[in-house]
Amino acid sequence: MTDVLRLPLRLIVLAFATVVIQQAAVSQISIFGVSADLSPLVVMSVGLLAGSLPGAIMGFGTGLLVDTVLVQTLGVTSLLYIAIGYWSGRLRELRDPAHGLVPLVLGAAATATAGIGMTLIQVLLGVDSPVSFLLIQQIVVTVLVNTLIALPVYTIVRRLIQPALPDDPRRRRRRAYTTGGLSPLQRPSQRLGPIPRSSR
């Protein structure tokens, strides 16, 4: 398998597995009256790890798959997930956040975007039935539940797609600094360890 195809293939498998696990198991488990939603978290994680273009493409593909298998209006979920994947990727490209809790905050933002965006689109398309104020409560609880699982989901996605990602010079440099290899703040003796007596 060529290096060019490694990432797309992994993303296709990841999108398919996400949708299957979501619909067959996760959506049937109720926590505080709502179900966790893995798909926006996975799209956010891909954007954060791989960048804006893979994030947007993953968002489009996952959204289209969700709409297709659930026999919903095609294009609605794609539109929302494109935004989630793209902006997660742009955040990585522009700020390169290194804090460990970034996926947690982005997971909450991605779920809120999906919930509020879906509500807006449905209202624009027309709703026949009265809408309860509890919808807001349900969106908030879903955001909280998804926030709790955002870090594990991000870790799993990173493990799956990291080997297929091209090595990023900025990350390699940061990794080297944090492990003490290339920091300009250290003396050569600190970097290399103590000089043996025989060579003095």
């Binding site: 067959a24 709502v34 939603d37 659930l70 919903q72 969106i139």
Partner: peptide, 10 residues
């Protein structure tokens, strides 16, 4: 039942 829609709207 084999699949369930997780969204609030459907």
């Amino acid at each position: 039942v084999i699949w369930r829609d997780p969204t609030l709207w459907y």
